Amino acid sequence: MTGPLRAVVTGASSGIGAATVRLLRARGWDVVAVARRADRLARLAAETGAVPLVADVTSGDDVALLAHEVTAGGPVHALVNNAGGAVGADPVASGSVARWRSMFEVNVLGTLRVTQALLPALTASGRGDIVVLTSTAAHGTYPGGGGYVAAKHAERTIASTLRLELVGQPVRVIEIAPGMVRTEEFSVRRFDGDQAKADAVYAGVAEPLVAEDVADAIVWCLTRPHHVNIDSMVIRPRAQVSNTQVARG
């Protein structure tokens, strides 16, 4: 194969997405960095040389334009479905339907839209990869996590079903399921900007994962020989052994 490999990373304006863009660029990949916030994308592009593309994965029109612009720019070898997030920590009995819907829109239907839009190009590349960033919430539940857990279980099912449906095709489907990751925005957004609640999630945990840890796992999976498929990787900090049991000092 001639020329660099080319990846599309969604949710690239911060956290795991931005860290993945940086590491892929450092490894010589061409990268299209996708997110809603143009200012952050512009700074990331200036820093890394990635191509910024402003799009909202919950918009069918935006995703159609994304696919058109990305495929016009050359072959596509990898899609990292990173856009997602949690909203609130309400019990099922009192959970907001609107909040559940918003989590399904970005985590589930966003991943579905972008994957469907780029799958033909990934297949045509002859060595395509689809990475789906789920969570340990996709593998087990916890009180107050019902909406996010349900969304991430659904997103994981997209990955596991698609892998079966693509058997024999030159496309790998890889699930990365991080546990406790401390990034600048995830928990703050979950708790509507309440920094104290966000900080309490990590209180006493000596070394939660950081975005670069997860980016390292993503890039490691992408850079295995293409006959090797990492079906699913669960990655937690040593201090966390389940969704509900964490060592706190």
Score class of each variant (00 low, 15 high):
10 T>Y: 06
164 L>D: 13
133 L>P: 05
222 L>I: 06
11 G>P: 02
91 P>G: 11
28 G>V: 05
240 Q>G: 05
8 V>M: 10
156 R>I: 00
58 T>N: 02
64 A>R: 09
238 R>C: 11
226 H>K: 07
7 A>P: 01
196 A>T: 12
159 A>Y: 07
48 T>P: 03
223 T>K: 05
105 E>F: 01
109 L>Y: 14
43 R>S: 13
185 E>A: 15
174 I>F: 08
137 A>C: 11
67 A>V: 00
154 A>D: 04
222 L>M: 08
109 L>G: 01
49 G>I: 05
62 D>S: 03
119 L>V: 02
125 S>Y: 01
63 V>A: 07
188 V>C: 13
239 A>V: 01
216 D>A: 15
121 A>Q: 03
223 T>R: 12
88 G>I: 01
52 P>E: 00
127 R>Q: 15
205 V>G: 10
111 T>A: 11
22 R>K: 15
170 P>H: 05
99 R>V: 08
102 S>Y: 02
236 R>E: 12
174 I>N: 07
109 L>D: 14
221 C>A: 15
80 V>K: 04
56 D>M: 06
69 E>V: 06
234 V>C: 11
34 V>C: 07
60 G>V: 05
234 V>A: 11
179 G>E: 10
247 A>V: 14
199 D>G: 04
7 A>G: 06
190 R>C: 08
165 E>L: 04
140 G>F: 12
136 T>A: 14
185 E>C: 12
102 S>Q: 14
131 V>Q: 09
152 K>Q: 10
50 A>L: 05
59 S>Y: 02
128 G>E: 09
112 L>A: 13
195 Q>S: 13
227 H>V: 13
209 L>T: 03
209 L>W: 06
143 P>L: 13
146 G>C: 02
215 A>R: 03
151 A>Y: 05
146 G>S: 12
107 N>A: 10
35 A>D: 04
88 G>C: 08
35 A>M: 07
62 D>N: 03
205 V>Q: 09
165 E>G: 03
122 L>F: 04
12 A>F: 08
83 A>G: 10
1 M>L: 14
10 T>D: 07
195 Q>A: 15
221 C>I: 05
191 F>E: 10
2 T>H: 15
57 V>I: 10
24 L>N: 03
170 P>G: 07
33 A>R: 02
115 T>F: 04
133 L>Y: 04
114 V>E: 06
242 S>N: 08
178 P>N: 10
248 R>Y: 00
176 I>T: 01
160 S>F: 00
97 V>L: 13
218 I>K: 04
15 G>S: 06
247 A>P: 00
230 I>Q: 13
226 H>Q: 11
136 T>W: 05
104 F>C: 01
101 R>E: 14
104 F>N: 01
141 T>V: 14
207 E>L: 15
97 V>S: 08
182 R>K: 14
128 G>W: 02
11 G>Q: 08
29 W>L: 05
47 E>D: 12
94 S>E: 15
142 Y>R: 13
139 H>W: 08
181 V>T: 13
93 A>T: 12
194 D>K: 04
203 A>Q: 11
52 P>T: 01
139 H>R: 14
27 R>C: 12
206 A>N: 12
238 R>S: 14
